[in-house]
C-alpha cells in the first residue's frame, strides 16, 4: 500500500519534471541530407530528459524530415520550409527560433557545434537574453554541463542559471542516435515572413572529395608541415584510400597552402575523435592536439624523436615519412 503510494508519487513527480522540461533541437542539413551532427545533438537532448522537438528549417526540408521521421523518443518535428532560409543565414533563422521559443517555452535549445550551430545559437541566446554554453562534451544534469577550455587543456564544469539553456554540443562526445524505432509527429510552421535583406547568401565553394567526411570518418590520415608541399599530400591520399580514411591537416599545412582550410584539425579547426588517427609530419602543437587527442588509437610518423606528438601517440614511428608512408601503403595491400 505504502509502496504503491510512493511509487505513485514518484511517478507523478517524474512526469511533472518531464512536463517542465522540453528541448528544441535545431537540425542541420543542406536541403539534400541531414547532417550527422544532428544525430549526436538528439542523443545529447535525450540525456537532458524531457520532451524533444526537432526543428527542420530550410528551402527543402523533406530529405532531413524523412531522415528523422522514424526516430524514437521524439515528440515532434517542426517543419519551416521557405525560400527565406536560403543559405541558412542566422539573420533569418534566429527570429524563427525565437518566435517558436516564445510560443512553446522550451527549457533547452540544442544544436551541434559545427560552423552552422556556432554561428546561429549565440545570436538566438542574445535575442533571448540568456548566456549560451558552447561545445559541451558532457551532460551532468539538466543545468550542469562539461566543456573544455584552453584548447582542451582544462575541463570545466558549469551550471547555467538562466531559465533557457542554449547549448551547442561537440559531435564526437555524443554517439549518433540511430533515428529508428519510432514514428514522429510532424507539424508545419509558417515561415515566409522571415525573409531578410540584412544578409544575403551568394555562393558556396565546397571542397569536392570522394573520401569520407573528416568530422565523421572512423580513420583519419593527417599531414603537417613535414609534407613540404601540396603535391606530396598525394602520399597521404594513397594511404587514405587504402584505409577508407578521411584526410586532415595541421594549421601549418593549411597556412602553407598545401591543402584547403576545411581540412584543418585543431582548436580552431575541426575537432575529431576517429578510431584511428595517423599523424604524418605533424609536430603536435597544443592547438593541434586539441582537435584529435580523443582519438582511440593515435599513430605518429615523424623523423624528430623529440616531437611532442609522440607523447600522445599509441604507436610512434621515428622515420622519414617519404619512405615510411609509401611502405605502409604498400604493406596494407
Amino acid at each position: 500500500m505504502l509502496c504503491n503510494r510512493t511509487r505513485h508519487l514518484i511517478y507523478q513527480f517524474s512526469s511533472q519534471a518531464r512536463r517542465l522540461q522540453s528541448t528544441l533541437v535545431i537540425a542541420e542539413h543542406d536541403n539534400k541530407s541531414l547532417s550527422p551532427i544532428t544525430q549526436s545533438a538528439i542523443t545529447a537532448a535525450k540525456k537532458l530528459g524531457g520532451d524533444i522537438t526537432v526543428l527542420v528549417a530550410g528551402e527543402q526540408c523533406k530529405p532531413a524530415v524523412e531522415a528523422i521521421a522514424k526516430a524514437s523518443g521524439l515528440s515532434k518535428i517542426l517543419i519551416a520550409e521557405s525560400a527565406a532560409f536560403k543559405g541558412f543565414t542566422p539573420e533569418s533563422l534566429a527570429p524563427l527560433v525565437v518566435d517558436i521559443q516564445k510560443k512553446s517555452n522550451f527549457t533547452h535549445i540544442v544544436s551541434g557545434a559545427s560552423a552552422f550551430g556556432k554561428a546561429l545559437l549565440p545570436r538566438i541566446a542574445a535575442t533571448l537574453d540568456v548566456s549560451p554554453v558552447s561545445d559541451i562534451i558532457g551532460v551532468q544534469s539538466a543545468d550542469t554541463f562539461v566543456r573544455s577550455i584552453y584548447a582542451g587543456n582544462a575541463i570545466q564544469t558549469v551550471t547555467a542559471t538562466d531559465p533557457i539553456k542554449v547549448i551547442t554540443i561537440r559531435g564526437t562526445n555524443f554517439e549518433a542516435d540511430n533515428l529508428e524505432g519510432g514514428s514522429v509527429a510532424q507539424e508545419t510552421v509558417a515561415a515566409d515572413s522571415y525573409k531578410t535583406d540584412s544578409t544575403e547568401f551568394i555562393s558556396q565553394e565546397l571542397s569536392k572529395s570522394d573520401r569520407p567526411d573528416l568530422s565523421s570518418a572512423s580513420v583519419v590520415v593527417s599531414g603537417g608541415r613535414g609534407l613540404k608541399s601540396g603535391d606530396n599530400f598525394k602520399l597521404l591520399y594513397d594511404l587514405a584510400d587504402k584505409l577508407n580514411a578521411a584526410v586532415g591537416a595541421s594549421r601549418a599545412a593549411v597556412d602553407a597552402g598545401f591543402v584547403p582550410n576545411d581540412l584543418q584539425v585543431g582548436q580552431t579547426g575541426k575537432i575529431i575523435a576517429p578510431d584511428l588517427y595517423i599523424a604524418v609530419g605533424i609536430s603536435g602543437a597544443i592547438q593541434h592536439l586539441a582537435g584529435m587527442k580523443d582519438s582511440k588509437t593515435i599513430v605518429a610518423i615523424n623523423k624528430d624523436p623529440e616531437a611532442p606528438i609522440f607523447q600522445v601517440a599509441d604507436y610512434g614511428l621515428v622515420a622519414d615519412l617519404f619512405k615510411a608512408v609509401p611502405e605502409l601503403t604498400e604493406k596494407l595491400k
Binding site: 548566456s131 582542451g152 614511428l317
Partner: peptide
C-alpha cells in the same frame, strides 16, 4: 549567468610505444 562548478585537468593519455619499423606498425594495427 553561468557558475563555474570546477576546473580540472583533462584525462591523461597513456604513453605509447616507439616502434622500430613499418612492419611492426602494420602488425599492431
Amino acid at each position: 549567468r553561468i557558475k563555474i562548478v570546477k576546473v580540472e585537468d583533462p584525462p591523461v593519455r597513456q604513453a605509447g610505444a616507439i616502434i622500430p619499423d613499418v612492419d611492426t606498425l602494420v602488425t599492431k594495427l
